[in-house]
């Protein structure tokens, strides 16, 4: 959908000074504060005897990684995918199916998760990225639904009941079944993903994606093939989300097709938007808010989804730039 904005025909010929951009700085500060807080959270929570919340935070970090990956395509690329959660499933089932076959070798499971996610993103991206707007929304949904129904139909891997993973992934002495180990592995991956996002956003590649989002015609007029760069971003995002799925499978010890449903993909979009689209700290902020609301409100009332829905509508109506946007006057970019 294009919004036509009337050209400003005023006599603003006097040159204005370059606008400083405090936005990004606030965003980065928030990112470091959140990461630091996450690093000490297990000790603090153990000290006050609220270990349960460590699990909630761990899950939020895994969702945060998935949301960072989605932010590459929604935030930088402007491409709304309603099927991104499929990569959580692909990463998860890579662990689950290999474990089911008795292979608990860490590098093999990780390699499979990354490889299958990347291959799926590449194959579907080649087709999906030829479409725009709502057609892109629907075609990404369609690819996700195909995998969703495939796993529903494969009874030998649990079908709609899901697949229990009895062996956790091990890398030599490093056992991801150990919650403490997993926590810091996930934190490291999250930190690296956020750093990577911050860097790419400022890079040649990021500029190109943002420009293609704003005006595709301009990008090809200067001589770039936007499709290739979008495909690269799509594959990178899918692979990173596959990694999140790999970690999630180790965390829950369980994979189910419902992780790939369009509702899950909708939740990922929600996390990105609530946190602040195209920002570094937004995805983890959004994921924490999402899970804290779920746990907190879920404890207060069984009808918490109602308030959650209202919260979502209010955010979209009144705080278009998300929580990080509230920190800044201008939208971070």
């Amino acid at each position: 959908m294009t919004r036509s904005i009337p050209a400003e025909d005023g006599a603003k010929l006097t040159s204005a000074p370059a606008r400083p951009r405090p936005a990004t700085d606030c965003d980065l500060v928030a990112a470091f504060v959140i990461l630091a807080a996450l690093a000490v959270a297990p000790f603090a929570l153990a000290a006050i005897g609220h270990d349960f919340w460590t699990d909630v935070i761990l899950r939020a970090m895994i969702l945060g990684i998935a949301a960072v990956s989605l932010n590459f395509i929604i935030g930088l690329g402007g491409l709304v995918s309603l099927g991104h959660a499929v990569f959580l499933g692909i990463g998860g089932y890579s662990v689950g199916i290999l474990a089911d076959l008795g292979i608990d070798n860490g590098p093999a499971q990780l390699g499979a998760a990354l490889l299958f996610s990347a291959a799926f993103a590449w194959l579907t991206g080649m087709i999906a990225l030829r479409t725009r707007g709502v057609h892109f929304i629907m075609i990404t949904l369609a690819f996700a639904q195909m995998v969703y129904f495939t796993m529903m139909g494969l009874r030998q891997f649990g079908g709609d009941d899901g697949l229990t993973i009895n062996y956790s992934t091990t890398f030599g002495p490093l056992d991801l079944g150990d919650k403490d180990v997993l926590y810091y592995v996930v934190l490291a991956v999250l930190g690296a993903a956020m750093l990577g996002f911050a860097r790419v956003r400022r890079s040649d590649f990021g500029l190109l994606l943002k420009a293609a989002k704003g005006n595709e015609r301009r990008v090809s007029a200067v001589g770039f093939n936007a499709y290739r760069y979008r495909l690269a971003a799509y594959v990178a995002a899918g692979t990173l989300c596959g990694l999140a799925g790999f970690l999630d499978a180790n965390f829950t010890g369980f994979v189910t097709p419902s992780a790939m449903s369009w509702i899950s993909s909708g939740e990922l979009i929600f996390i990105v938007i609530v946190g602040g689209i195209a920002s570094v700290s937004g995805p983890i902020a959004g994921a924490l808010v999402f899970l804290l609301i779920e746990e907190w409100m879920g404890g207060l009332t069984v009808y918490w989804h109602f308030w959650f829905g209202l919260f979502l509508i209010a955010i979209i109506l009144f705080a278009r730039n998300g929580l990080v946007g509230l920190l800044n006057q201008r939208r971070p970019r």
């Binding site: 959908m1 919004r3 929604i74 709304v80 309603l82 707007g133 709502v134 929304i137 909708g266 979009i269 929600f270 938007i273 069984v302 009808y303 918490w304 989804h305 109602f306 959650f308 829905g309 209202l310 919260f311 979502l312 509508i313 979209i316 109506l317 278009r320």
Partner: peptide, 21 residues
Amino acid sequence: DHLDQVLVTFGLVLCADTAVK
């Protein structure tokens, strides 16, 4: 844009399903 529309109607679905419950 479509993104906002998807999200706001997603919110409506959550509200409506819970209200019915």
